[in-house]
Amino acid sequence: MKSLYFCLENYTDIIVGIMEMKTIVSEINGTVRVGLDLLQNNVDFAFASDLMSDVLTVEKEDILLITGLANLQTIRTAEMADIRYIIFARGKNIDGQIVQLASENNMVIITTPYSVFRVSGILYQLGIQPVF
């Protein structure tokens, strides 16, 4: 009985760690700028950084990136690192070039008025796991 209890507990942990993108959008008061058709996709890991060189050292694929750096290189970095989900914090301006490049790469781009710290806290509480 004891082993069954542990088994169920682990199973619950796994379920909690996976989240649909549309739930994340709603929890962070987000606006979807690109990728409305991909919101049923699930993510389970996230990484927060404004340093793109740091993002490029992450070996895990298909993670969610939380950043305050909104330029074309953020999208290029995500493209090379096989990251399809990006949250731009603090209401960053997303220009047409960013939207176009993200769209060409089948990404989901979300903006939120919340800070990187607040977004990270919310997602961590929801069970999204850290890469490191």
Partner: peptide, 15 residues
């Protein structure tokens, strides 16, 4: 400002 220049590029290229 572009998100680079932290001295990680060349080591990451080697890796």
């Amino acid at each position: 400002e572009m998100g680079f220049g932290a001295g990680m590029g060349l080591p990451n290229m080697k890796k």
